[in-house]
């Protein structure tokens, strides 16, 4: 009888062992070997691959880009998501318009990274509509190569990711806003609070737990970005938009340096897991 629940979780557990535990051990082991996968009896080399990775300036560039991309994305996702959620929840706006806009504002979330990449490659093409509009408004005076100039590429990719990712915050915060008890606002009103004070002392504290969990989850996922970068810039020009994921991918599947790639994959894993630790702690506290 005590074995019954274990039988129900057995298939899932077996799959997690095969697809999660084993690979983690394997990637850790590869990272300690000399030329894993490609060589039959690869030798144990200790932390050499990590040393090589740390000595590679491109690794540090990729780390810097990943952090910039992630922090900017999370901050602007949060700001846009909150702004849209507040506007969509505003009683000043006609309810029919609100419910239509609510549907439309989620649309960027529906598209997969590859399609988002292709849409923005079309829009941000040097001959594309964004340059067309900016030039006719005299904001820029030449055809900017958004994705292929090293001074704009990282910002362009980050902007596209901001566009694609805010709806998650918007939807979560809208649900949060609708869950705030009305009496809190009424009580604040009786105490003489103005709209800003109500926002500052009722709305924000009520939304904070949601904002923290969405932001942590978003931070972890954004840090692992691959498809969007791969399809817009491929990490280039030169290394201008190289992220930890594209750096690792190229080491493994363009240069077949599986051991070095494993070392950098383990480092990315450690980064992700340290944020995950806070995420789980936060979820448990809620």
């Amino acid at each position: 009888m005590r074995l019954v629940p274990l039988a129900y979780v057995a298939p899932a557990t077996a799959l997690f062992a095969l697809l999660m535990l084993y690979p983690m051990v394997a990637v850790l082991r590869y990272s300690l070997l000399d030329r894993a996968i490609t060589k039959r009896n690869a030798a144990f080399v200790g932390l050499d691959n990590y040393q090589t990775t740390f000595d590679d300036p491109v690794f540090w560039q990729a780390t810097g880009h990943t952090l910039y991309f992630t922090v900017m994305s999370v901050v602007f996702h949060l700001l846009l998501g909150l702004a849209f959620a507040l506007m969509l929840n505003s009683e000043r706006v006609n309810p029919t318009i609100r419910s239509i806009l609510r549907v439309l504002y989620i649309l960027p979330w529906l598209f997969t990274a590859v399609i988002i990449a292709i849409i923005w490659r079309l829009l941000l093409d040097p001959e594309g509509v964004v340059n067309g509009v900016l030039m006719s408004l005299h904001i820029v005076d030449f055809k900017v190569e958004w994705f292929s100039s090293s001074s704009t590429a990282l910002h362009a990719v980050t902007f596209v990711n901001i566009w694609a990712g805010y709806p998650l915050y918007m939807v979560s915060l809208l649900a949060g806003l609708q869950g705030i008890p009305r009496d809190l606002y009424e009580a604040a009103g009786i105490d003489g609070a103005n709209p800003w004070q109500k926002f500052r002392h009722v709305t924000i504290p009520q939304l904070t737990p949601i904002m923290i969990s969405v932001a942590l989850l978003d931070f972890i996922w954004t840090m692992q970005v691959f498809a969007l970068v791969w399809m817009t810039t491929g990490g280039g020009p030169i290394y201008a938009t190289e992220m930890l994921s594209t750096y690792t991918y190229k080491l493994a599947f363009s240069r077949y340096q599986f051991s070095l790639a494993s070392a950098s994959a383990v480092l990315l894993l450690i980064l992700s897991m340290s944020v995950t630790y806070f995420y789980i702690k936060h979820q448990k506290a809620r």
Binding site: M24, Y249, L269
Partner: peptide, 24 residues
């Protein structure tokens, strides 16, 4: 323990798994 494990698997970078998956 299993529950925490399941939540944390959602945050493992796909690229980290991909290298051993390729071998498997």
């Amino acid at each position: 323990a299993l529950n925490v494990f399941i939540i944390s698997t959602q945050t493992v970078p796909p690229i980290t798994l991909l290298i051993p998956y390729f071998g498997m």
